[in-house]
Amino acid sequence: MPIYYSTSAIGRRGIRFFSRIGGTALLLFRAMKAVAELPRSFRLFVHQLYYLGVNSLPLILVISIFVGAVAAWQAAYQFAFIGAPLRYLGQAVGKAVVIELAPVLSAIVFAGRVGAGIAAELGTMKVTEQIDALESMGISPIRYLVMPRILSCLFMVPFLVVFAIFLSIAGAWAVSVIGVNVSSETFLNGFKSSFAIGDFINGLIKASVFGLIIGTVACYEGFNATGGAHGVGQSTTTAVVISSVMILISNFVFAVLLFRV
C-alpha cells in the first residue's frame, strides 16, 4: 500500500508539474497573440512600464551599488590571496558585472518585487471575481491584464540591467579607489580593456528572457490562485520561487550557449 500511495503521489505531482509548464506556455502564447492589439492597450502598457519598471529604480539603485562594491572588495581580497596585481581589478569586476551580476541579480530582485506584485494583484482579482467580471463585460483579461504586464517586464528588465551595470561599476570604482587604493585611471582602464559590446548585448538578451519568465510566471500563478488570502499568498510565493529558479537555470543555459569555453 505505501508503494501504491507514493507512486500515485509522484504521479499527481508529475501531472501538476507538466500542466503548470503547459499552462504557462499557453498563457505566453495567448499574450503574444494579443500583442496585435497593443494599440488598444497602449495606455495600460505605458502605465505598467512606469508602475513596474520606474518604481523599481530605487531598489535596483541601492542593490547595484552594493553588489558592485562587494564584488570589487572580494576580488581585491582574492587578488591579494593569489598575489595577482590590482591593475586587473577593473577588468575582473567589469566582466563579472556585465555578464553575470547585473543581469541575474537585477532579474531576481525584479522577480521578488514585481513578480510578487503581479501575482498578488492578479490573484486577488481572481479570487474576488474581478477577472470573471472583466470577461462578463466582453473584455479579454489576456489583452487587458496579461499582455501589458508581460510586455512591460520584457522591456523593463533590460532597461534596469543597463542601469544596474552603470551603478555596479560606480560602486566597484568607489570601493577600488577609496578602500583598495587602486587609482581611478587604473580601474577604468582595466574596465575599458575588458569591455566587449558582445558581452553587453548578451547580457541584455538574457535580461529580456528573464523579464519574459518573470512576467509570464507571475501572471500564470496569479490567474490560477484559488481560495482566499491564503491562496493568493501561496501563488505569490510560488511565482517568486519558480521565477528565481527558472532565471538561474536559463542563465546557465545562456552561459553554455553564449560563452564557449
Binding site: T124, M125, T128, E129, Q130, D132, A133, E135, S136, M137, G138
Partner: peptide
C-alpha cells in the same frame, strides 16, 4: 456574445 448579458457578482467584483 457576452455583451448580451449583464452580471452582478456575489461580492460585486468592483475593480479596486
Amino acid at each position: 456574445f457576452r455583451r448580451k448579458f449583464g452580471m452582478l457578482f456575489q461580492g460585486a467584483a468592483l475593480f479596486d
